[in-house]
Design a protein around this nucleic acid. Structure first.
Lengths: 251, 251
DNA sequence: CGGAGGATTGAGGGCCCTCAACTGCGGTGG
DNA sequence: CCACCGCAGTTGAGGGCCCTCAATCCTCCG
């Protein structure tokens, strides 16, 4: 079931067959959630870790007066906040965009996993640190980049993220978000998002029709968006912990 | 030495004398860094965890064309990226603002600490999760709030953060950052920061003279800044793990 | 075929930007 | 002791990016 998670983690470290079986076993309890519904809401007490199996969701926060900021997107293979249990209640919400199929992983199952499978532990650390790095990059994106760069940057990130879990096709992918969502993620109004998308189209940097995004020249889009891929920490950085590799020493 | 760290962690959980001694022992190797210098730079390979003992620093990221985003401030008691070792190289820099005294904690010392002191482990988890929550709140801040709210929000956060480590005096604290720094942290120009500060002063919400900030009515400033303190997860959430409290069960 | 939500377009305006000059202040050296 | 320097803070002018409001078009779907 969690093939996207496995594929994602293997961008960092090669897992053994037992590692994979353990991940499968942990992902047994499946839940379906309709589109535009909260998976967990601000103020709730977290009870398990959600693993997105299929569909898109997002982390978001809403101000008293209704303004809404999307803080990150969750795509298949993404874990929503492992270790969140340390905190008493959620300070933000997680909601679906499309219909979502997810696995609910109990806290004990997760700590069991990390007790017994050091490679999984390492890989989950990597995934968590990358998640935080992405959050930082979003801060840079919204704080410093112009509208065009901002939208271009987020499209690059989403495309590369999807490619990492095998959900792209050549140079295109599905993009099931509205322009309002894109605006809430980038701090722009939907009207301006629309105009920026038109400009990206006119420059031949993207083709966006319906829910399908095509990026004819990813490098070009990265260039105009000032996109530096280093914050995603790809490149099999964990190869020293590979299955069949040298035995990892503690922690 | 690490009294600020201890005080901060005890906002979450009460530590035992042995816990505190262990933290002291881990913080022995001290380093001094002058103002406006990098503690560690983007591209460097992280070698130990830095604990700020005294002074202000910040995490920042610079775009090719020079635009700079401050991603967070580090105040006394703050740990710069525990567990960063999983990644090969830094995707951002950490630099000082004022002169800084810091402790360099080796990776092994830290994993030793967490192996042997479960309350410290919990407390460090809490501190890390709060750090991430703060990063998310900055994204909201820059993405959704107007200039006035944005500056007000960051001032509230800094004040409460300083209060938590015992560095406030009644309703005032030191604020050793320039208006340029504030602009880089909020995505505003220094000129606009200046005008916003004047407006906050005229409204009686702050007194800012030299490097001293006074907030006559914190609640009022929170109100106009749409500041909701929940993301800092205070309130002794970890009291169930207190020293002398019930024995914590695994993870 | 009608309705609803999303995308697009236009108009007008405001928040915030850049550029540039000037003021204030602490430190430094003659 | 004071002139000087550099940096931070302040102020003004003009403009651009992006906002809001509102109308229209398109698309999907029951």
């Amino acid at each position: 079931m969690p093939q996207h998670l496995i594929r994602k983690l293997e961008q960092f470290v090669q897992l053994s067959p037992e590692d994979k079986l353990a991940l499968e076993a942990a992902s047994r309890k499946v839940r379906l959630v309709g589109p535009h519904q909260d998976i967990i809401s601000e103020g709730d007490s977290p009870e398990h870790v959600n693993l997105i199996l299929e569909g898109w969701a997002c982390r978001y926060k809403q101000l008293e007066d209704g303004r809404r900021q999307i803080l990150s997107f969750f795509l298949p293979g993404d874990l929503c906040d492992p270790h969140i249990f340390v905190l008493r209640e959620m300070d933000h919400s997680i909601g679906t965009i499309t219909p979502v199929r997810l696995a609910e992983i109990p806290a004990e199952t997760l700590s069991d996993l990390t007790d017994r499978y050091p490679r999984i532990t390492k890989a989950l650390w990597w995934e968590m640190l990358v998640t935080v790095a992405v959050q930082r990059e979003w801060t840079v994106n919204i704080g410093q980049r112009m509208g065009l760069e901002r939208i271009g940057h987020i499209l690059c990130e989403l495309f590369i993220h999807l490619r990492g879990v095998g959900l792209t096709d050549e140079n295109s992918c599905l993009l099931p978000v509205t322009q309002i969502d894109l605006g809430d993620a980038t701090g722009l109004s939907n009207v301006h998002v629309n105009r920026v998308l038109q400009e990206l189209r006119m420059n031949g940097l993207i083709v966006l029709k319906g829910k399908r995004l095509t990026i004819p020249d990813l490098e070009a889009l990265q260039r105009v968006s000032l996109f530096n891929v280093n914050y995603l920490h790809l490149d099999r950085e964990g190869r020293r912990f590979d299955a069949n590799g040298p035995v990892p020493h503690s922690a």
